[in-house]
């Protein structure tokens, strides 16, 4: 039920959201009520009765810094997709084995820390801009493991496994905190399952693509959507 509330403007939700949810718990909505709520949401956006609150924070003075995490996620997602395309389009080997992926893996290795740092930065931004020690360490490990993976064997394997672990940790820990809608979170789960089934030996290499697509989608949402504001005093 809270999903339909997300159609309403933030200031409206903060003012009326709780009591409307309580009402809908008392009186479960019929299909007509759902249409009525949707109309109400459009009305609230077209004819706002409450002013949207503007947070007074240093970041507001520099909108570009607000957009950086989103832009980094878009960049990381596109880079990841380029890497996947390089694998997917590479000629299949004439004998059993892996495709000649060339620079594809380094490109993917560069894209993942970019996505990781974007997610961490977006979550930090939503919290008000203070980087915690855990945030900093995860970002350092994400970037560091990529650097290690470029040093050749056995750094390649150590860096790769570390990067995968850090990325998984960052996605689980930060995706919702960074402001990703529930469907993006669900998409991340699906993309991860698909990625596990990916194989560079055949066309299953393309199963990696949803990860890059999701990073791009998250980046677009994060860039285009204004950052949340402090709660409105309902009194």
């Amino acid at each position: 039920m809270s999903a339909i509330l997300r159609l309403y403007p933030r200031a409206w939700r903060e003012r009326y959201g709780d009591e409307l949810l309580a009402l809908l718990e008392d009186r479960p909505p019929s299909p007509l009520d759902l249409i009525d709520l949707t109309r109400g949401a459009f009305d609230a956006r077209l004819h706002p009765q409450l002013p949207e609150t503007q947070p007074v924070t240093p970041e507001r003075k520099n909108p570009m810094s607000d957009r950086l995490p989103g832009l980094a996620a878009i960049g990381g997602g596109l880079l990841f997709l380029v890497g996947v395309a390089m694998i997917g389009l590479a000629p299949l080997p004439s004998f059993d084995g892996y495709r000649e992926t060339g620079l594809a893996m380094p490109v993917i290795f560069l894209s993942l820390p970019l996505i990781d740092v974007a997610l961490i930065a977006a979550a930090v931004r939503r919290r008000g801009g203070a980087w915690g020690r855990g945030d900093t360490w995860l970002a350092i490990i994400a970037v560091g493991s990529t650097a290690v993976s470029m040093t050749g064997w056995p750094g390649l394997m150590i860096g790769f496994l570390t990067l995968i672990a850090v990325t998984a940790t960052v996605v689980v820990r930060y995706l919702r905190n960074a402001g990703a809608p529930p469907w993006v979170v669900a998409g991340a789960v699906v993309a991860t399952v698909l990625a596990i089934a990916a194989n560079t030996e055949d066309d299953r290499a393309w199963l990696l693509a949803p990860i890059g697509l999701l990073a791009v989608v998250f980046g677009l949402i994060s860039t285009l959507r204004p950052r949340p504001s402090p709660s409105v005093d309902p009194a």
Partner: peptide
């Protein structure tokens, strides 16, 4: 009165 209409009207009356 549907819930969406109710709260749209309440918001107007309050404003």
């Amino acid at each position: 009165i549907g819930p969406g209409t109710l709260y749209a009207a309440l918001a107007r009356l309050e404003a």
